[in-house]
């Protein structure tokens, strides 16, 4: 495996301890809680499962799945202890995250109670969401900016282990607003570097992104830039509903520009935008319809084994 691939995530899964990213303020229920009240407890706290505790000790786990099963059976109200999972899998707070990931995967759980190794007491709960958020935080990537690909988060875990985790970043680029121009490209570069991507590759992606961002600002009323990173490549898409490019072949010629003078005065619009994007990309695709908009897609391959 090339060490220039998206390796930081893999490393972190081994480096991070469960205790670092679990949440400690755990909502729990007692074994005597009626099942009929469970839904409200889960809803109010926005959780999909919770530990069942008696006198400070963990006696089971009850989840929204258990609740649904109980509902379907409709054999009257009962206590949580009758429906909970008693054979609870736990992890210790000082274990590396990979142990938790493996357990969640193997048993198909959504959450794991975390125990303190010394006292044996419940120290917190670890969910798949905690893991994703924890990893991204560690990489200093804004949780809201980045989203793991795939609707089912379990995908993520297979992917992390399979070395092909895909990250999706999305940036909104306002039109005609020069003050923030380049912010998206700068952000992308920082993120790519944190993911452990080769500096040269990160720079090429950032340059392509910068030029695409400038195009959105100069020629449209705004648009969107998406970047998708997996173990193989960085794919950047710039989408807008602007005026479109009249003559793509001509626009690809160095020096050809339709930018107004005020743009040139800001150091852009010298007719090198698309040329630069093409130079940096391993593959470039332009889809443009006059009056409808433009989609530029760029692919930059990650360094392969030497």
């Amino acid at each position: 495996m090339s060490d220039e691939r998206v390796t930081k995530l893999q490393e972190l899964v081994y480096e991070l301890r469960v205790g670092e990213i679990m949440h400690e303020d755990v909502i729990s229920v007692s074994p005597e809680t009626p099942m009929s009240e469970l839904r409200e407890i889960l809803r109010i706290n926005r959780i999909s499962g919770t530990p069942v505790m008696r006198d400070g000790s963990l006696v089971g786990m009850i989840s929204i799945e258990d609740f649904i099963r109980w509902l379907v059976k409709s054999d009257g109200d009962c206590r949580v202890e009758a429906k909970m999972t008693r054979d609870v899998r736990t992890v210790f707070a000082d274990e590396p995250l990979i142990q938790a990931v493996n357990k969640l995967e193997r048993f198909g759980f959504g959450r794991l109670p975390v125990l303190d190794r010394k006292s044996g007491k419940l120290a917190g709960v670890l969910t798949k969401g905690d893991i994703i958020e924890g990893l991204l935080k560690k990489l200093e990537i804004d949780y809201h900016e980045a989203e793991m690909m795939g609707a089912r988060s379990s995908h993520v875990f297979e992917d992390i282990i399979a070395d092909s985790s895909a990250l999706l970043f999305e940036y909104q680029v306002p039109g005609k607003d020069f003050t923030r121009a380049g912010a998206c490209a700068s952000g992308l570069k920082t993120t790519l570097r944190r993911l452990g991507i080769h500096p040269q590759t990160a720079r090429r992606a950032a340059i392509a992104c910068y030029e695409a961002e400038m195009n959105l600002i100069v020629h449209t009323d705004g648009g969107r830039i998406e970047a998708r990173v997996d173990g193989r490549a960085i794919r950047i898409q710039a989408l807008d509903e602007g005026p479109g490019i009249e003559d793509v072949a001509r626009a690809m010629q160095p020096g050809y520009s339709t930018a107004p003078d005020w743009v040139r005065e800001l150091g852009f619009g010298a007719g090198m935008g698309l040329v630069n994007i093409d130079k940096c990309a391993d593959r470039m695709e332009i889809d443009s319809t006059t009056g409808k908009g433009t989609r530029i897609e760029v692919e930059i391959l990650l360094e392969t084994e030497p």
């Binding site: 020096g255 520009s257 003078d261 040139r264 005065e265 150091g267 010298a270």
Partner: peptide, 25 residues
Amino acid sequence: SDLMSDVIANGLEGDLWITLQTHQN
């Protein structure tokens, strides 16, 4: 300079102008 406004403001008669700009302005 590559900025028109700069050359308009600061260029002096007889200067040889070095630039990357290729348009007719």
